[in-house]
Design a binder for these strands. Structure first.
Lengths: 237, 237
DNA sequence: GTCTATATGGCGATAGAC
DNA sequence: GTCTATCGCCATATAGAC
């Protein structure tokens, strides 16, 4: 009845990602050395075992501290999780709303830049991003609401970019809500499978995903009928 | 310091999905009534609070049983999780490998049918599918490996379908691995946001996603240069 | 700020009556 | 097969010395 499996070793393409160090560029520069190390340790623990399966001992002992030391720097384990998720969400939003990006006139180049940045950020910081996407249920209701607000701001950036391309005629007449949702899905789901030692660098994956996004937005709908055999998903019972 | 938040009520489009009953068509018909009810209860608990934050008391009390009753039907909480994830993965694989689907000659119609089925299944059973995607870390190493094998079989079905379209010339000369991965991402990520009371029925979402998949596979690569401003994801520090 | 020691409570799983 | 009662364990978080 092993309570936690340390599955750090037996990874697979579909498994949990390896856990390289993303700390230097991720955390706020005003943070002290020990809090930063604790956050980095927590990211690794949460990503591999999940928030609830991670103990405060796991987090602190990985950086050579005793169990109680964590509470000098953070009031609770939940706040550690919140700091991780908040930082990641704010970084992503800032990265796709830099003035130079928002100012791109051509709708095609604009969406291309947005998707490339969104995707490559998630790839570059895929371990922290994984925690940000998978462990939202560990947050308190208040912290959860705060994260949701940031997410909506980010989503709106993409929605507006697709909308602009459709209204200006640069894109095909696609469903804005469903297409922008699909684009975000491509950028988010990679935290499930991305590995730094795979064939794609974050930048390459960003460029490729931007291509896919533009194909979805610029190609007119095909006039196929419904899928053969229908899709009565309940028939598999 | 609420250990668990019962966030059943304050949902959002980005939040946890509502928890309708998916049981009748999902579980094995040979299962007794009580085990089926326990599995359904566990799906709801795991989906809203996560595996580790769910207690065996949560699962059993939701169906009007005492804490110990669960162990008459399942040897451990982990096995309950395994049964859920195993059933879902096997159902999906079976649904996209029905002979009538595999026998579709036209590569375009074949991929369309695959994506429509894969997507609509995940939408139809999105609560159980969410557990299957988000709670893999709760499995034992052995059970995890078994699930991975089923996943690979499913992934290979999509990879082969894209490959065939490319080699026969029905699709554009796209990167098979990356495109099939993106298609699977669209089908999987919906478990994060799908709601039964949204605008799309499972069938409609399946048809739309199949359209997107075909756009990705059939549209030749655009000859855009790299995204403006590059994608140096580390510059957001 | 870090340590050791511990308070406090809840969890998974079992025992034994009915 | 279900119940009540409980065991043994470990979690988060705190107290107080250094």
């Amino acid at each position: 009845m092993a309570k936690r499996q340390a599955r750090f070793t037996t990874q697979d393409l579909e498994g949990l990602p390896e856990l390289e160090d993303e700390s230097p560029a991720l955390w706020d520069g005003s943070l002290g050395d020990v809090p930063r190390k604790l956050l980095t340790s927590a990211v690794r623990c949460f990503a591999s075992n999940g928030f609830h399966a991670t103990t405060t001992r796991d987090i602190s002992s990985a950086v050579g501290l005793s169990p109680g030391a964590l509470y000098v720097h953070f009031p609770s384990k939940e706040v550690v999780l919140f700091e991780i998720i908040r930082t990641a969400h704010q970084r992503v939003l800032a990265y796709v709303t830099e003035p130079a990006v928002l100012g791109i006139e051509d709708p095609v180049r604009h969406l291309q830049a947005l998707v490339a940045r969104y995707t490559s950020w998630h790839a570059r910081y895929h371990v922290a991003a994984r925690v940000s996407q998978y462990e939202l249920a560990g947050l308190s209701a208040e912290h959860y609401e705060e994260i949701l607000e940031t997410r909506h701001r980010t989503n709106d950036v993409f929605r507006a970019a697709v909308e602009r391309g459709v209204t200006t005629g640069a894109f095909a007449d696609v469903d804005v809500k469903r297409v922008s949702r699909a684009i975000l899905s491509l950028g988010i789901d990679l935290v499930r499978w991305y590995r730094r030692d795979g064939t794609d660098s974050p930048g390459q994956l960003g460029e490729f995903t931007a291509q896919l996004a533009l194909k979805m937005a610029m190609t007119p709908d095909l006039d196929l009928g419904p899928a053969p055999l229908g899709t009565p998903a309940a028939s598999s019972a």
